[in-house]
Design a binder for these strands. Sequence first.
DNA 1: CGATAGTTTGATATCCTTCAAAACCTGTGG
DNA 2: CCACAGGTTTTGAAGGATATCAAACTATCG
Lengths: 242, 242
Amino acid sequence: MPDLLLRRLKTVAELSGEDEAWVTRLCAKPQARKAGEVIVQQGERPRSLFMLADGWACHSVTLSNERRQIISYLVPGDICDVHVFDLEVVDFALRTLSDASLVSVSREQLAETATRYPQVAWGLRRLTAISGATLRQWLANLGMRDAYERLAHLFCEMWFRLEAVGLTHGGTFDLPVTQEQLSEMTGLTPVHVNRVLQRMRREGLIALATRSLAIHDLEALRRIAEFDGSYLRTTAPVSSDA
Amino acid sequence: MPDLLLRRLKTVAELSGEDEAWVTRLCAKPQARKAGEVIVQQGERPRSLFMLADGWACHSVTLSNERRQIISYLVPGDICDVHVFDLEVVDFALRTLSDASLVSVSREQLAETATRYPQVAWGLRRLTAISGATLRQWLANLGMRDAYERLAHLFCEMWFRLEAVGLTHGGTFDLPVTQEQLSEMTGLTPVHVNRVLQRMRREGLIALATRSLAIHDLEALRRIAEFDGSYLRTTAPVSSDA
DNA sequence: CGATAGTTTGATATCCTTCAAAACCTGTGG
DNA sequence: CCACAGGTTTTGAAGGATATCAAACTATCG
């Protein structure tokens, strides 16, 4: 919880002391939210930009008949959507998956960031670009892979994203998500997710406790999913521009 | 072909005469490409930002075993990816689907746009936001809908996107895409796509000629797909900001 | 300790894929 | 103008992956 947002930003951009101070100020007053709260409704006008300081959240789209798809999940250090202010209506909901802590950035603060802290702005752009890439990979995941591969891919991605913010401990990480929610992420049935998970356990790939996932054989998971994490782009940045 | 790019931009932002002149200049020298060419390879460093002046193109991701997923398709007036310059490597390929005409914008030109033509920059941001929304809807499409609904959704989307740039004529539009490619968009088998198309014809929803699609019952397609086009956001913009 | 949410199980139906071959176009060269 | 080549669409039969439904279990928490 000690500024994971700052930590995350620093993985994608070089920040000066002033930059850091500004970011710290932006993150000054995080709001606590309970699991399962709706932070932003599909169809609302954008009020502010959210960044996730702690906990998990997700973007989702809902159809009339109760069908719901999780479009992306957010872990600590992620920003929710930099483009919010560019459209008059947001096309997806933002919901917490676990108890969470959110930082809210106003339109004005964002504008000020752009003009006075270009490195921070650049970092935000890069994070945005990364979540765009993640979305594309996910689309590919749904389109090309079967259930087994899909879940393997998901777990690989989670592993690397959480590792980047130091949220893994010895092959294990917190997974505050039900199988039903995993099914909403993967476009599968809860029942089927359950069966695939059992298979993965039987094969010694993972172990799954109530709120945490242990990865026993990351290499195997990567092979199964043909996972190439380069889209998560965690290398140090080289240069910026205006 | 008379600047569809300009036309598209004007659907999302108010442009002054100078803005228009600048856009026209950017679009001065379009390059012609044949169908099926690879414009940008997965894994390349970004060289320039592409905008599609004419024809169809797509972004795609490929897995080793020949599996390929079309991540998004581009129609005239679309920009290919504003975030190219924010990452050191691009994570998806850009390919033409038909003979096409592409405008290429350099890093410097983009920077100049940002500093000297804020309205144009705003328009580009909005178009980017829209394609992000489109991507999310597509993900939802793959995750929640069956083959029949998926194709219905795709056709609705195509209809409204093409209409926005004046590329529909009396219920019909050019569709320079094989069933195989439709299958790569929807994550289905070519064979199955074929069967669903036949069903749609039998039901009087569409008619499909070699290179063009006639929508016979748009309302029915919308109902089937629960299509809500508001994410394509084609209303006039209200205000900008720095 | 009982209520409630989450996970597991089994049996059955369906959608979609796979493979392989046939039919159909469209453009090209003789 | 015909014939043929190559790509695209269509067809059929059969298998596999995933969904559906409903019930039994298992945790967790007040």
